[in-house]
Design a protein around this nucleic acid. Structure first.
Length: 585
RNA sequence: GGACCCGUAGCUCAGCUGGAUAGAGCGCUGCCCUCCGAAGGCAGAGGUCGUACGUUCGAAUCGUAUCGGGUCCGCCA
């Protein structure tokens, strides 16, 4: 349960009541009314801006409204004090017992604690990775993969129905090149000496693909014409590479459920379909675009094109849908694809894209709005670059020389949980430094370690308690039933409890903002609060969790510790990171 | 030339969709500890939130302009 929402409800009842009683005008717009924890905890547990927000509408001074509210709020059962502060904030304090009860909630709910319902009835499609099937995933793909995957989990936790999707760009010139490159490697596998010309894919990985094809088909294609072998080598290569990509994703703990093929989409007539719908809306015309300014106009020649009126939906220029040979542009296919996602039931579409797609967002949003008749919305999460470092030194990468770091390399070096956690330690639109040395360091400035360490410490305490008293049950439901939570009375303990009580709120707001990184920051804070409490026990032995002379307090603290481990596990679950029970060397 | 993203402590970054005295880690300064319940702990200094206007009870947050850095810019995907 989200305590803040409960009080928001209470507050609305009170406001309605005041309206019917004539103290406030009826029909007030309450959309800006909030109930949230004040930034400064000394102001109280909860704060509402109602009086400030409603002042103008109601035609009364904020202080007067605040007085009215305060009188009513004081009557609520869990409220111990109400103060009016600053320009008209109403600050509440809740009884300690109200907070302590959350520990029981957490123990009973387990890792489902924090699950919300704001997404109920809303279907969201999260598309991520969507790397071209022309080569293995490299390190940079890790970010989009993790951001998308964690966002999907976050949305699920908040109650949305989520489809995890991967768009396979298996149509167009690049996969044709892939097919030809593979053919060369195929000949190579059959004993020929080949040169890989410029413009082909030189990667070593295609040797395996060529060899596998030679293995399967023998010399069958050696004397065939390109028209015959190209579809074969192309489809074979796509299939092989895609299998590798899926394996890499699986090893990163990423589980896209739906793989949509661009080629299949075109074959189904979906592009023609989407195009017709735009024609019917009079959003298509033939025109000539201005050359981009400031950029060298090289071979620019004005040319009439089939254009979509993207400018009507906020884009900067109208966008071409057909190439001069009459085939669809990538954009045209993508419009059909987004319509397809919408028609499959998701009105909220999220694309997790790389930094190089920033300029693409506006047109896709324009198209999504147009093609869904304004019923579908697209949010694009652009992931900025990841800088790979080794002890502060940039890791040299060159596509030309083929020395790029693959996703597999990264997973093998630092482990999947570290990759996943670190990728969420920055907002998606902020560049991220990934230092192989730092991310595996055991210190406070490594958030992965710091959070895992907190969880491990919880487990360690529970293990000790079990060793000391093998007959004791540490099952969460038993702790919930037997612990006398009123014994948790130190400021540090209550602070920790309040932090855990805000977890549902964190989930909710992060989901609404489509920002999974907030989970990582929350866990870092929670870990910090727990470590702080632990440290108290170092010089004040009465603050330790296990106290031989006070079994009742010990049980209460074990309940608290268990709750902390549950909330950490709940957060790590969203991030797709496995909580560890002990740390090793 | 244009679009998008970023600009917050010396450094790396948060800042809950407009709230009250702007936070964390590292680094720096000072004190304490050497416990075994494994990262040492505690305290302190350090900011006109790039700049300038604007919106309003109230702006790091929204708008406009401007400066600096990044990504990108017609039939590539």
């Amino acid at each position: 349960m989200n305590l803040f929402n409960e009080f928001a409800k209470d507050l609305r009842v009170i406001l309605d009541d005041l309206a019917t009683g004539g103290d406030l005008p009826a029909g007030l717009d309450l959309s800006k009314v909030t109930v949230e924890p004040p930034r400064d905890p000394s102001h109280g547990d909860l704060s509402t801006n109602s009086a400030l927000v409603l002042s103008k509408q109601a035609g009364r001074k904020p202080r007067d409204i605040a007085e009215l509210l305060a009188a009513r709020l004081r009557a609520l059962p869990d409220v111990t004090s109400v103060e009016i502060a600053g320009p008209g904030f109403v600050n509440l304090r809740l009884s300690d017992d109200t907070w302590r009860e959350r520990v029981g909630d957490i123990l009973v709910a387990g890792v489902t604690y924090g699950n919300g319902s704001i997404g109920a009835g809303i279907a969201v499609n999260v598309e991520y990775v969507s790397a071209n099937p022309t080569g293995p995933l490299h390190a940079a793909h890790a970010r989009g993969a993790v951001v998308g995957d964690a966002l999907a989990s976050l949305l699920e936790k908040a109650g949305y129905t989520v489809t995890r999707e991967y768009y396979i760009n298996d149509a167009g010139a690049q996969v044709e090149v892939l097919g030809r490159s593979t053919y060369l490697r195929y000949r190579e596998a059959l004993g020929e000496t080949v040169e890989i010309p410029a413009g082909m894919y030189p990667g070593e990985y295609l040797k395996d693909v060529g060899a596998a094809l030679a293995e399967r088909d023998g010399a069958k294609w050696l004397d065939a014409s390109e028209a015959d072998w190209l579809p074969v080598t192309r489809d074979f290569a796509i299939e092989q590479i895609l299998a590798g990509i899926k394996q890499d994703l699986a090893d990163l703990g990423v589980r896209n459920q739906v793989f949509s093929s661009e080629r299949a989409l075109i074959a189904s007539g979906a592009v023609e379909d989407a195009y017709q719908s735009l024609v019917e809306q009079d959003l298509i015309y033939t025109g000539v675009l201005e050359p981009p300014k400031g950029k060298k106009p090289d071979h620019w020649e004005p040319r009439p094109q089939t254009l979509f009126r993207a400018t009507q939906f906020g884009d900067d220029v109208d966008r071409p849908l057909k190439k001069s040979d009459g085939s669809w542009t990538y954009f045209a296919n993508d419009i059909a694809y987004h319509l397809d996602k919408y028609r499959r039931g998701s009105s909220v579409l999220i694309d997790v894209l790389g930094a190089d797609h920033g300029g693409y967002v506006k047109r896709m949003q324009a198209a999504t709005t147009a093609v869904t008749g304004g019923q579908g919305s697209l949010d694009a999460k652009i992931c900025q670059l990841v800088h790979l470092l080794q002890n502060g030194e940039p890791v040299k990468m060159s596509k030309r020389a083929g020395t790029f770091v693959t996703l597999r390399d990264v997973i093998d070096q630092v482990g999947r949980d570290v990759v996943r956690f670190i990728m969420l330690t920055r907002r998606n639109d902020q560049t991220l430094e990934f230092d192989f040395a730092k991310v595996t360091e055991q210190s406070k400035d490594n958030p992965v370690f710091y959070v895992q360490y907190a969880h491990a410490r919880c487990c360690s305490v529970l293990r000790h308690a079990q060793d000391a008293d093998p007959a004791r049950s540490l099952a969460p439901e038993d702790l919930a039933a037997t612990a006398v939570l009123a014994r948790l009375s130190s400021p540090e303990e209550l602070e920790l409890i309040k932090l855990m009580a805000s977890w549902p709120r964190v989930v909710e707001s992060a989901a609404q903002a489509h920002e999974a990184h907030r989970i990582a920051f929350y866990l870092y804070d929670l870990a910090g609060a727990f470590h702080g409490l632990w440290n108290k026990g170092k010089d004040d032995t009465t603050m330790r969790f296990l106290l031989d002379e006070d079994p009742e307090l010990t049980t209460a603290r074990l309940a608290l510790v268990k709750a902390v481990s549950i909330v950490i596990a709940s957060g790590l679950d969203v991030m797709g990171v496995e909580p560890v029970e002990e740390l090793r060397g």
